[in-house]
């Protein structure tokens, strides 16, 4: 596999704040690489450094084997960018916006026309080509934003939180579109603070917190890094301390929490954890209601490594 992006020892400071702290990443060709972290963790700063939109204090960034600089136009021509905020011109129609941004990369008029047509079809804006952005709904605007970033068929596409403030239906379309682009051969860097999205589409994930790389790997690799293998939630109307201590002593049980009639039992990766827990409750004549068993999520990974919830940070 070819390394498309290599970030070595990257440091970016904003006065006293270290936004990116000795970051090392390698993104391989054909991947959908997720940058997952709470707001303010440094994801967008990494992207800005990668695109040479901002300077950095230390480190080196290589893209397609070449050192990335603001004047490395040949490399820039192979990258597409879809930013968090919709970056289009209100004074141009849907078609004109896509054609304008495509013209920054493609000079040949006939080729550009073809590419713009394909991009419009890809995001499903055929019925809106003559519309001005202000006439489009939020979801359609997002699609236009994506079309402007991918019309020139880039080999590397960077999506910086493209689904923020998007309705679930449009979000799914966007995620499907990204996977389709990847199938067509594009390497994708996808930043988000929505762990479900990252888990859904990314082949490899880097978890970032406070500008530092917390962990990197496939979702399975990340989940295997933590002790929690399964989380069991049981509705228990009443639970004595004795039962609680007894649950904690069961093999594979890592921790037990009891709050407002819900027992949350974290277990290591052993088999039949649910069975053992329910057997114990039966034996102690503890009545219980519904039972839920979940595999660990990236939130569990984030929680166990950083000691805080990814979701909390999102709020």
């Amino acid at each position: 596999m070819n390394t498309v992006v290599k970030i070595e020892n990257l440091v970016k400071r904003y006065k006293e704040l270290v936004a990116v702290d000795h970051m090392n990443l390698a993104i391989e060709q054909g991947e959908i690489f997720g940058l997952l972290g709470p707001n303010g963790s440094g994801k967008s700063t990494i992207i800005n450094c990668l695109l040479s939109l901002t300077s950095y204090d230390k480190g080196e960034i290589t893209v397609f084997g070449e050192k990335m600089r603001a004047d490395n136009y040949s490399v820039k021509g192979r990258i597409g960018v879809v930013l968090q905020n919709v970056a289009v011109f209100d004074e141009l129609t849907v078609y004109e916006n896509i054609d304008y941004f495509c013209s920054l990369y493609i000079k040949d008029k006939a080729k550009r026309k073809e590419l713009v047509k394909e991009a419009i079809a890809f995001v499903g804006l055929e019925d809106f080509v003559k519309f001005y952005p202000k006439k489009l709904s939020g979801g359609l605007l997002r699609r236009l934003n994506i079309a402007c970033g991918i019309a020139h068929k880039p080999e590397l596409i960077i999506f910086d939180e493209p689904t923020v403030a998007v309705d679930p239906q449009s979000r799914n379309k966007i995620l499907e579109g990204i996977q389709e682009l990847n199938r067509q051969g594009a390497t994708v860097i996808y930043t988000s603070h929505y762990m479900e999205e990252v888990e859904q589409i990314c082949s490899r994930i880097a978890i970032i917190d406070k500008g530092q790389l917390v962990a990197t790997g496939t979702k399975e690799e990340l989940k295997s890094m933590i002790q929690t293998g399964e989380t069991i939630r049981v509705e228990v109307p009443e639970m004595t301390d004795e039962v609680l201590f007894g649950l904690e002593k069961l093999s594979h049980v890592l921790s037990v929490e009891y709050n407002e009639g819900l027992a949350t039992i974290k277990c290591s990766g052993g088999r039949h954890n649910v069975l053992h827990v329910l057997e114990y409750l039966n034996n102690t004549e503890t009545s219980f209601g519904r039972v839920f068993a979940e595999q660990p999520t990236l939130n569990d990974v984030f929680l166990e490594i950083t000691g805080k919830e990814l979701r909390d940070e999102v709020q």
């Binding site: 040479s52 939109l53 136009y73 820039k76 919709v86 970056a87 402007c148």
Partner: peptide
């Protein structure tokens, strides 16, 4: 100007190969 209100458009333009 990537620090202006139009920062996203500026970013998109500056990320392109246009000199």
């Amino acid at each position: 100007n990537t620090k202006a209100n139009t920062a996203d458009v500026a970013a998109r333009r500056l990320a392109s190969p246009m000199k």
